[in-house]
Amino acid sequence: MRKETTRFNGKMVLQIAILAACIKSGLSSVFAAGFPEPGDVSAGGQAWVENCTHCHNLRNPNELRDDQWITSMFHMRIRAGLTGKETRDILSFIQAANATAAQQRIRAEAEAVRAAQQSEAQPQQ
């Protein structure tokens, strides 16, 4: 009795390779440790300007908190057809800009408090 053997032709190899690549890339996302992983801030700045203005006016990063930007950016990933990398880059850029804006506000508040204390102290002298 002749034993049947499976012979892999070029098309099958290609199909298996594509399937393996899809599963691998899918699994690497499933087991990603970061939420989300940090992106490239400078690339994010460029992607932010190039993509967001296609549809709407640019929103100021300090309109939302960092955690709110996460869901907003994943929503926009679907709407605008962004890749995962573009999404992470833009998110990192926005969060960095948000932190800078927050630092500026804190500094301004501290300076205001210091100025108020100095003006209170002056009449006593």
């Binding site: 899809c22 890339s25 690497s28 996302s29 994943f74 890749t83 995962g84």
Partner: peptide, 12 residues
């Protein structure tokens, strides 16, 4: 319900 399968594919 959107599943982010990988960097290039989202199932909606």
């Amino acid at each position: 319900v959107d599943a982010f399968l990988n960097d290039c594919i989202t199932l909606v």
